[in-house]
Design a protein around this nucleic acid. Structure first.
Lengths: 358, 358
DNA sequence: AGAACAATCCAAAGCGCTTTGGAAAAGTGC
DNA sequence: GCACTTTTCCAAAGCGCTTTGGATTGTTCT
């Protein structure tokens, strides 16, 4: 039978844009039935479902997202708006977060709609997303200590999940956060246990909620050990390598310089090590270092090795967080009546070479 | 008149999803006229154009992208598919590239549609983009030495611009590239001029086109100075910090270790410096270092300072490249008949502290 | 066998925009 | 004042999908 393979994919033929109508005509079925078959509705018999599916595959039929979106009101896209800090700095953590998230999205057939905007312009973008129905939901990055975005999103009824959290009514919306307070308390305690009393905190921007929580953990540990907090030992800024370097130089130039440094991210920590080396000091011997580690992929060992890592760190995978946040958001979009999901992850302390070996 | 401000934006009222039909009824005009007025067509008088625009603004009317897309076939979205390397490594350069690109997109009212995929799966995604008309164009990241994506995109007729280039028929498609060959030739020459003859190249993955060009420039400089190339001095891998560290350790363990190192990216260069410090060597004194620098925002000095930078580098802004690539792509989408655009940017040599001061 | 019911399938009405092919109104020249 | 061009506006037909409200056929029960 000469037509037996007429449905087979043809690489050579410029794939004529086949649509539902044509497909249903070819099959001798109505558009309704074909649509339902393809979307797995129960009111179509298994026999025809298979037949339809095969024809669709063979003819390389791909439903138009615009048309589907117009008909359903769903876009199958998630908005991520990435803040650009004042110094045109774009936080490298996002790429890893997005890599994790995109895994979950891909599995569910969703796309990422990305916008980058100076911090503060995010609200307009959310409004735009909502009123034009451009996305089905958004994830909120880098919540500030006061965070108008959360109330806004609630009021415009756009599903969202916060990476981090902010405000007091944290049970009224979905979020996933690392237990930053606990992480930095434990990290600080570890340094104290090793005999340090003058400990510096090279923190992130303290307009960020996570930075404030880290500082609180840091100070809680000091207080628990009756060490007076000294504000000269605390600094905060965008987490660049250069900042870590300069902060370290400044710290070690103090009269009573700290003997241990805690970094909010591995990038400034690397800058710190560079500064130490310039000063002829060795990390882990002359000065102890602990850093928070988001397990950025481009700073990892290429093969998950046995060698002890360089930095002693408080560690949690930002890729894993991205994946989970995405899953939470999709779940919420699927069932908008579900109650908010909250997850607080504990970071893990990893022994490295920048603190005393135990 | 009590209704004088009935068009004013009302923050409190849950913005009823107003559409073209309602808007035109309110105005007493046809949908045609309103649509044309809003889109700046000439066949509507200035007077009514203004009237329509004001009403639209006041009522906060936002046209539905799905509907517009269905009607026009244009999506006002650009696809970026970011490759994830074998080791789940996601290249941090992309976030800066995208930041630059998003500037151009925002100005033109375009969005970024982001997908992340294991290298090699990109083609399926492009095919999907094309057949479902999900985006109006794509930018091709990280072209390989043999790059099937370019031919594919040509054949499925999806507008694209390559960041980098590949193949021999480079005038048949649009691309923007840095003159990698020239950059590395000059960088190598600078080291040679400073008396180095044993120079190592810590290159990126040589399946990447740019890495091959850099190696060619490196070897050309050696040859021009009658220095025999020594393959032991060349290594290549994903450009992580750890790789730079380990490669440096390995290089300096050779019988005749190199006296100068060239790095393909600032991340491995940082790893290299860390390794030197461990070995008790000082970058710029005991061992010279030159690195290619994409001017990643999170590695820059927070304020464009006067201080001499740490690394001597061959430098070109990847953010600027992102912006320009986006502009080129938009221009091509606007006028699909225009001939391909090619831009070859020269990198700039920046004196830092890791080579002899001149 | 006829009624009652479930299993399949379909025609047609949207979703909210753009755009074609005119029609009505307004301006022009004689 | 009339024919003619130009300006300004409109009705209606899509774009390609989903979904409502039946219609048709096949099964089962009495």
């Amino acid at each position: 039978m000469i037509n037996s393979n007429r449905f087979e994919k043809s690489e050579t033929m410029a794939s004529a844009p086949i649509n539902l109508k044509k497909l249903s005509e070819i099959l001798g079925l109505s558009q309704t039935t074909v649509s339902r078959a393809l979307n797995g509705f129960p009111e179509v018999s298994e026999k025809t479902r298979v037949r339809v599916q095969q024809a669709a595959d063979g003819l390389n039929y791909r439903p138009s997202p615009s048309a589907a979106s117009l008909a359903t009101g769903k876009t199958r896209a998630i908005g991520h708006v990435i803040p650009i800090s004042e110094h045109r700095m774009i936080n490298p953590h996002f790429s890893d977060f997005l890599a994790g998230a995109s895994e979950a999205y891909a599995a569910a057939g969703y796309d990422i709609l990305l916008r980058m905007a100076p911090a503060g312009e995010e609200e307009d973008i959310y409004r735009d997303f909502a009123s034009r129905r451009r996305v089905d939901g958004v994830v909120v990055h880098g919540p500030k200590t006061v965070e108008p975005r959360i109330d806004l999103l609630k009021s415009i009824n756009l599903p969202f999940v916060v990476h981090g959290r902010s405000g007091s009514d944290t049970d009224t919306y979905s979020w996933l956060d690392v237990n930053n307070l606990n992480a930095f308390q434990q990290g600080t305690q570890l340094l104290i246990d090793q005999g340090h009393t003058r400990i510096a905190l090279v923190n992130g921007l303290e307009s960020m909620n996570f930075a404030l929580r880290r500082r609180a953990g840091f100070e809680a540990a000091l207080e628990a050990n009756n060490i007076a907090a000294d504000s000269r030992y605390i600094c905060s800024a965008d987490m660049t390598e250069t900042y870590g370097h300069d902060a370290t130089v400044a710290q070690l130039a103090l009269k009573n310089p700290p003997t241990a440094l805690m970094f909010a991210s591995i990038l400034p920590a690397m800058g710190g090590v560079r500064a130490l080396n310039e000063l002829g000091l060795r990390a882990g011997k002359d000065v102890a270092i602990i850093t928070y580690d988001d397990q950025l992929s481009f700073l990892q060992s290429p093969d998950g090795e046995n060698t002890t890592p360089f930095f002693t760190s408080i560690s949690s995978s930002i890729q894993a967080a991205g994946k989970r946040v995405a899953e939470m958001l999709l779940a919420q979009i699927d069932d908008s009546s579900r109650s908010p999901l909250n997850e607080l992850w504990e970071a893990e302390i990893v022994q490295g070479q920048t603190t005393k070996q135990t």
